[in-house]
């Protein structure tokens, strides 16, 4: 019989496994973590450990669906998978290009 560990208080798995890369595929992290952690906290931790600027806000993007994960969601809910499957994500800075209003 195959069983999956579940958090008794919710339907999300107890742990999830992630592989996170940055946009340029220069830095990569493998994580195994408590599925109840918030996406935003996971993004900041991963970015910090991947030597990405920790003073920036980072979002996680699902490489399969191309959708950004909700910062406030539990990571287990957001990726919607069991603890055995590795989910591929990309750490994306909340940054944009642009000249603002003051020209040089």
């Amino acid at each position: 019989m195959i069983t999956t560990r579940q958090n008794v208080l919710s339907n999300i798995p107890a742990t999830v496994r992630l592989r996170i890369r940055d946009i340029t595929s220069t830095h990569e992290a493998e994580l195994e973590l408590d599925a109840t952690l918030r996406v935003g906290a996971v993004a900041q931790t991963a970015a910090s450990r991947m030597s990405l600027p920790a003073d920036t806000s980072w979002a996680l993007r699902d490489d399969t669906t191309a959708a950004f994960l909700d910062d406030d969601a539990a990571i287990g809910d957001a990726v919607g998978t069991s603890g055995d499957t590795v989910v591929f994500l990309t750490a994306t800075p909340r940054a944009h290009l642009g000249g603002g209003r003051s020209a040089g």
């Binding site: 595929s25 220069t26 830095h27 990569e28 992290a29 493998e30 994580l31 195994e32 973590l33 408590d34 952690l37 906290a41 996971v42 900041q44 931790t45 991963a46 970015a47 910090s48 450990r49 991947m50 030597s51 920790a54 003073d55």
Partner: peptide
């Protein structure tokens, strides 16, 4: 130092290409 961004409950390994 940077303010800590670490959270308990995360096992993490990193590599740089």
């Amino acid at each position: 130092p940077e303010p800590s961004q670490e959270h308990a409950g995360i096992k993490i390994t990193t590599r740089t290409a």
